[in-house]
Amino acid sequence: MSVQTPDSVLDRLWSPFETQSGSRRSLFLMSPLILFELLIFVVPFAMLVRISLSEQSQSLPYAEGTFTIASYIEVLQSGFLQGIIVYSFRLGIIATVLAVVLATFYAYATWRADGLLKSALLFSVVLPLLTTLVIKTYAWVPLLAPNGTANNLLLAVGLLSAPVQVVPNTLGVVIGQVYIVFPYAMLAIYSVLSTVEWELVEAARDLGAGRARSFVEVVLPEIIPGITVATIISFAWSVGAYSAPALLGAGSDRPFALEIQEQMLLNFNWPIATALSTIMLVLMFVSIVLIYVVLGRFGGDVSNAA
């Protein structure tokens, strides 16, 4: 047991940053971003949690200086809000499964293509990715509405006898949401897939494995890290979906994002809005860890994905 002087404590705290020479300079270069993340990300979230623990107020957004967990109890006990949370997760799971399956297929097709076809396939995901959510959502209205293109076409051909209400409806929400997250999922998988060697697949096929089998047994294990990232991104974004349910959904399509907006901007009930946000963040965090662990089982090392 040696007595620690303040100096040696400081040294110890500093030592992780000091392992190599020049790391002070490195710290200096990183400091703008570190400061930014602290001030615009960490501190605001601390404040969010603090407000969620305040009393609600009639005249103000929240009662300053009070402390209570009443809003959490209210959110967790309200059947209405529980329904909203369940809806969000259900949408998240359905959209994620669809997006990741389709994205895996499309990433594989892009990986196998070359030249102009490959560029075209990549372009078809990068362009929607760089297009605003507003357009990505709104674009489906003229296409899927009861008097829209798809219905008119199917009616004219005779495949439908009456128009189908896809928009506004839950099916429309799912289509819109899959369309929104698909590019992110596809590129996450594609960037891992492009490091896989095609010779491996050829070898498996030479040894008699069919297309499906060579994909499942050779390619799939290699791209689990990409699939994990794709799943996590799609899930996080679909649980938090805002624009697709708002524009393509019916009145019953109500995820938590819409509720938070209403509580925040219309009812000015900040404790409820922030408590619901915090609860959703915790639930999403737990789910993401779960996804990470479960998918990690299949593919081993996920940590070098991103």
Partner: peptide
């Protein structure tokens, strides 16, 4: 730093919007 920098991309924009509006 890397995970902290990625994290905002995984948080639903509505929650980020609420958080920053409060702040």
């Amino acid at each position: 730093l890397t995970p902290v920098v990625i994290l905002p991309l995984l948080i639903p924009p509505v929650i980020l919007g609420v958080t920053l509006l409060v702040y």
